[in-house]
Amino acid sequence: MMTNALALAGVVVREMYRRKDFYVLLILTVIITLAMGAVNFFNDDKIVRYLKELCLLLIWISTLVMAITSAARQLPTERENRTIFPLLAKPISRGEVIFGKFLGCWFACGMALLVFYLFFSVLSGVRENIWPISLYFQALWLHWMMLGIVTAMVIFGSLVFAAPSSNATICFVVTFGILMMGRHLNKVALGMAEPTSTIVYTLYYNIPHLEIYDVRDLIVHNQPPVEWGWWALATPYAAAYIAFFLVAAWWVFKRKSLSA
C-alpha cells in the first residue's frame, strides 16, 4: 500500500511544484515582510517583534491557502479530466489514491514550510541576534501537523461537496473559525442556556483544536519552547484527526460513482 501511495504522492508533489502557487506566495511574503521591515519607527532599528508577527501571519495564511486549494482540487480534477479511470485501472485501490493524494499535498506543504521558516529564522536572527532553533523546530512541526489535519479535512470535503470552490470556501471558514474561536468555545458554552450549551460543548470536544498548533505568540514574544513531552503529545492528537478524515474520505470514495 505504502509504495503505491508514495508513488502517487511523488506525482502530486511534482505537480504542485510545477504550478506557480508556492513561488508567488513565497515572493509575496518576502516582499511584504521586507517592505514592512524597512519602515522606520522612531529611528529605532532594534524593533523586531511586529515584523516577526507579520511574517508568521503571512506564512500561516500562505501555507493554509496552499494546503486548502491544492487538496481541494486533487480528486475533482482527476474526475473531471477522467484520469481517475486509468489511475484506478492500475493495481491501486481507492484507499491508496486517497492516502497518496493526502501524502503528496502534505509533503509539498512540509517542503514549502521549510523554505518559509528558513526565511523567517534568517530574518529574525539577523534583526534580533537570537536563534531559538528548538522553538522554531517545534513551531514548524506543529504547523505541519496542523496542515495535515486541514489537508485530510479538505480531501474528505472534496468528496462531499459538489465543487472544489465550495469545498475550499467552507474549509477556509471552518479552519479560520477554529483557529479564532476553538479555544473559547467552552467559555461561550458555559454562558449559554440548555440545550445550546450542551450542543456547543459537544462541538468543542469534537472539533480538531487547530489553535493548539499555533505557537506564534511564543516565538514573537521570545518565550521558552513548549515542554517536549506536551509537544510530542500534540502529534498523536493530530494523527487521530488525520486518520479519522482519511478513513471517512475512503469510506465515501468507496461508495461514490466515478462517472458522474
Partner: peptide, 24 residues
C-alpha cells in the same frame, strides 16, 4: 492541554524592550 502551547505567565517588557510596543 492547550495551555502548554500559549503564553500563560504574566511578565512585562523591561530594560528598553518596551520599544517593541511602539509600532502599534
Amino acid at each position: 492541554f492547550s495551555r502548554h502551547f500559549y503564553i500563560t505567565k504574566h511578565s512585562h517588557l523591561e530594560k528598553g524592550q518596551e520599544r517593541e510596543m511602539l509600532p502599534w
